[in-house]
C-alpha cells in the first residue's frame, strides 16, 4: 500500500474534494491499484531521455497586444451562483 487513508485525505484536501469518511478506503484501494499499474514504468531507465510535454514540438505562437474583448459581465454572470454589484460572492475570506 503506497497510499493509506491518511494520505488519501491529504490529497483530497489538496484537491479540495469533500470525500465521505466511509468512501476513503475505497478510493485508497483504487488509487493503489492504479499506482501499481503505474509502477510498471520503473521497468526502464529513463534518465538520459528528455521529457516530452507535447506531441508537437513547436514553439509558442504570440498574439499582438490588442484589446479585442468587450464587457460581457451580464452575459457571463448569468451562470454565476451568487453575484452582487457585479462581484462574484463567496463566503467571507479571512486573511
Amino acid at each position: 500500500m503506497v497510499l493509506d487513508s491518511d494520505k488519501v485525505k491529504k490529497i483530497a484536501h489538496l484537491a479540495r474534494l469533500g470525500i465521505k469518511e466511509e468512501d476513503i478506503p475505497g478510493y485508497a484501494q483504487d488509487l493503489n491499484k492504479i499506482l501499481g499499474l503505474v509502477e510498471n514504468m520503473s521497468a526502464i531507465k529513463t534518465e538520459a531521455i528528455l521529457p516530452l510535454a507535447h506531441p508537437m514540438e513547436v514553439a509558442q505562437r504570440l498574439r499582438a497586444d490588442v484589446v479585442t474583448e468587450v464587457d460581457q459581465r451580464v452575459h457571463f454572470q448569468k451562470n454565476a451562483p451568487a453575484v452582487e454589484a457585479g462581484l462574484y460572492l463567496v463566503p467571507k475570506v479571512i486573511e
Binding site: 484589446v67 474583448e69 457571463f76 454572470q77 457585479g86
Partner: peptide, 21 residues
C-alpha cells in the same frame, strides 16, 4: 494594453468584472 493571455483590457479602475473576459 491587453492581458497576458487574453484580449481583455488592462486599464485600471474599471467597474468590477467588466474587464474579465
Amino acid at each position: 494594453k491587453s492581458k497576458i493571455f487574453s484580449g481583455a483590457s488592462t486599464a485600471y479602475g474599471a467597474a468590477p468584472n467588466t474587464q474579465a473576459c
